[in-house]
Amino acid sequence: MIQENVLGEIVGVDETGIATIKAAIPDLNRAIIRKYKTVQITFDDGRKISCTQRRKCYALLGEIAEYTDGIRTAETVDEQKRLLKMEFMLRRMEATERRMFSLSDCDMSTAREFITYLIDFIIANDIPTRARLIDNCDDIAAYMYACTMHRKCAVCGKAADIHHCEGSRIGAGVDRTKAHQLGREVLPLCRVHHTELHAMPESEFIAKYHLQKVKLDEQLCKRLRFKK
């Protein structure tokens, strides 16, 4: 179905959160013939990409370029940027939102989603990085989820165990393969950092590395082969 996209202006919002939007109809006669009843509304962020977000994007693209091309240059980074922007638009953007964007002036939400996509790509493809991924992420929750999904340590990126947090631990003597896991809170940690956690209060460890607990959902349970 052919869609017509126009920009509208919010002219009022009532106390229940219902907005009144003013927008011009591109072709009034066609609108009358087609008897338009509903419209799809997308709210633009309005904020431009920050310098910090731009730096993170290029740092991550540099890591990917160095791994895939064997060298990090302006040319290899630009090529990875071109390829990954296209992949991002096809895989992550809704059909109605797919459009080319620039890291010089895109909105903050797009930049945030693109950073998350680059980090997911690095984790899924086991790409080594000079800097800790968590230092370049814009969405800690999404980063923690990706690390759990791929069993990567959220602190250093090495192969991880799944640590069950306080209040979600499975009792001693209980068969872990038979215990229900859905909704339990976990952290993906390598043996070294798992051992470090057990040597201090859990909350102190989480604060030290700026982590967030991950709640196991159906997708994670399936991937980790945990009983729901």
Rank of each mutant, 00 (worst) to 15 (best):
H150T: 01
G183P: 06
Y117E: 01
K208F: 03
G8F: 03
A142Q: 04
R223T: 13
N5G: 04
L83A: 10
K152Y: 07
L60F: 04
R82G: 00
F88K: 11
E4D: 12
M108I: 07
D120I: 02
L133H: 06
E63Y: 09
C156A: 02
K227P: 03
D217G: 11
L182Q: 15
F114M: 01
V155N: 06
C57M: 13
N136S: 08
V77W: 11
T16S: 14
M93C: 03
R151S: 12
D175K: 15
I21M: 10
M86T: 08
I71T: 10
R176C: 12
D69F: 11
L83K: 14
L133S: 06
Y67C: 07
A124D: 09
E218H: 14
E97K: 15
G171R: 15
I115C: 07
I170M: 12
K178W: 14
G173L: 09
R82Y: 01
Y36I: 14
K56A: 00
T110S: 02
L133G: 03
H210T: 08
S104M: 14
A24T: 05
D27H: 14
D27T: 09
D105F: 15
I21A: 09
R55W: 06
P26I: 05
R225F: 12
D14N: 12
E66I: 02
R184K: 15
E87T: 13
R223S: 11
A141F: 12
D161G: 03
R82D: 00
E94F: 05
V39Q: 09
V174H: 00
R176P: 15
Q80Y: 03
I49S: 14
A65Y: 14
H164I: 07
K22Q: 01
F101E: 08
L84K: 11
K81R: 10
R54N: 11
R54K: 13
G12W: 05
L133T: 04
C57E: 13
E218A: 15
Q212I: 03
G62Q: 09
Y58V: 02
T16A: 11
D78T: 12
L83H: 11
E97I: 09
R55S: 13
V214D: 01
G17E: 15
R92W: 14
V39A: 14
R169E: 06
Q219P: 00
D105E: 13
L189W: 08
L182K: 15
E202Y: 10
A65S: 15
G183M: 04
H198L: 05
A24R: 07
Y145H: 12
N29C: 01
E113P: 05
D45F: 07
A65P: 15
A59I: 09
I206Y: 05
T52R: 11
I49Y: 13
G167E: 02
E87Q: 15
I119R: 12
I71R: 13
I64M: 12
F43E: 02
K81L: 03
Y58C: 02
E63W: 10
T52E: 08
I115E: 06
V13A: 07
D27F: 11
A154I: 02
T68G: 01
R184E: 13
F114C: 01
A172T: 10
T195C: 07
A24C: 00
E97C: 13
N136K: 07
E79H: 07
A74L: 06
I2Q: 06
Q212Y: 03
K213D: 00
C106F: 05
E79M: 05
C57K: 10
M200F: 04
R82V: 00
V11E: 05
I18V: 15
E185P: 02
G70M: 04
I64C: 12
R55T: 12
Y117W: 02
I134L: 04
